[in-house]
């Protein structure tokens, strides 16, 4: 039971980091970067390739993270900015970011081939016993990174003027620009953070998945499902959605059948979208609103 929970939270943190990458980009630009999953794959395969060439692990990891970040920013300049400059309300980024995803995936498939590439085991080789459950050091680091991502995001958004400016851009970019916000710089920053988080998720999950060019599809889709479960409006909730998805998927694997996590997330997201369309963590607001209207109605009746 504890093992299911801990393993679920670890996997969920990976989904959550990808979901946060989606959500932070969306928060600032109202664009979904469909190449996010591919950025995770890029960091994994670069580490695999560079380590195979004889580079030290840490150099491979740094290169992987930098590449994912740079590719995230490049996606903005290649696939998003031109489209939005042409028409601010265009939805053409749906196709153009997907195009970037396909190009990245095809390029890496061409270079690496479809076979699985080894990934340095690193911290994943060290197990830690926690009562009846076992985690590896890598998994514990993963959980810590997830926690750090949520807390860091919350602190910046809530307590720094820069975070508040980001929130202002999120709600009204035009007026934010009239108080001095460089909206383009914020968009670039969002795509950079998104790329970095996706790359980080790749480094953390690499020892488990190994590298192959089609990982981006899997993690892109699961990250997107986590985003739908948590709610797209708040990046911290997206991480929460990842955790819920992770725990329930591992539980489904354990209690329903070994392949249940292949289909279970889709059932889960359907249920979530049916019951609370704005995500699990927005439902509190909806409940409160419901009670408020009822109370207001009753006060009206009593008056």
């Amino acid at each position: 039971m504890l093992q299911v929970l801990l393993s679920g939270l670890t996997v969920g943190t990976i989904y959550g980091l990808v979901a946060m990458a989606f959500a932070i980009v969306f928060y600032v630009t109202k664009v979904i970067n469909f190449a996010t999953g591919q950025l995770l794959m890029v960091s994994i395969l670069l580490v695999s390739g560079l380590v195979k060439l004889g580079l030290p692990d840490w150099l491979g990891i740094v290169t992987g993270l930098v590449a994912a970040t740079v590719l995230g920013v490049a996606t903005y300049f290649i696939a998003v900015r031109p489209v939005l400059r042409f028409d601010r309300f265009s939805f053409a980024w749906l196709v153009s970011t997907l195009g970037v995803a396909i190009v990245i995936q095809a390029t890496f498939a061409l270079i690496y081939g479809p076979a699985s590439q080894p990934f340095p085991r690193g911290l994943h080789a060290i197990p830690v016993r926690l009562g009846p459950a076992t985690l590896t050091v890598q998994e514990i680091v993963t959980l810590a990174v997830g926690l750090l991502a949520i807390v860091g995001w919350h602190l910046v958004r809530r307590y720094t003027l820069l975070g508040k400016l980001g929130k202002a851009i999120s709600t009204d970019p035009e007026i934010a620009s009239t108080v001095g916000a460089n909206v383009t710089a914020f968009a670039v920053g969002a795509f950079a953070i998104g790329g970095f988080l996706a790359g980080l998720a790749g480094i953390l999950v690499g020892p488990i998945t190994y590298g192959n060019p089609y990982l981006g599809d899997t993690y892109g889709i699961f990250g997107f499902i986590a985003l739908m479960i948590g709610g797209i409006q708040r990046p911290a909730a997206a991480m929460g959605g990842g955790l819920v998805l992770g725990v329930l998927s591992i539980a489904a694997n354990t209690y329903i059948g070994a392949q249940a996590s292949d289909w279970f997330p889709f059932v889960l997201v359907l249920l979530v979208l049916l019951l609370t369309p704005n995500g699990v963590f927005a439902s509190g607001d909806q409940l409160r609103r419901l009670f408020r209207t009822r109370r207001a109605y009753q006060q009206g009746v009593n008056a």
């Binding site: 202002a168 620009s177 916000a181």
Partner: peptide
């Protein structure tokens, strides 16, 4: 010039409909 440059001390605006930053 883009608005964020003009905002650096040259001009500031009260927009039509106020448009305060929501949720802050």
């Amino acid at each position: 010039a883009p608005p964020h440059r003009i905002a650096r001390g040259l001009a500031a605006m009260v927009p039509e409909g106020r448009r305060l930053f929501v949720g802050q």
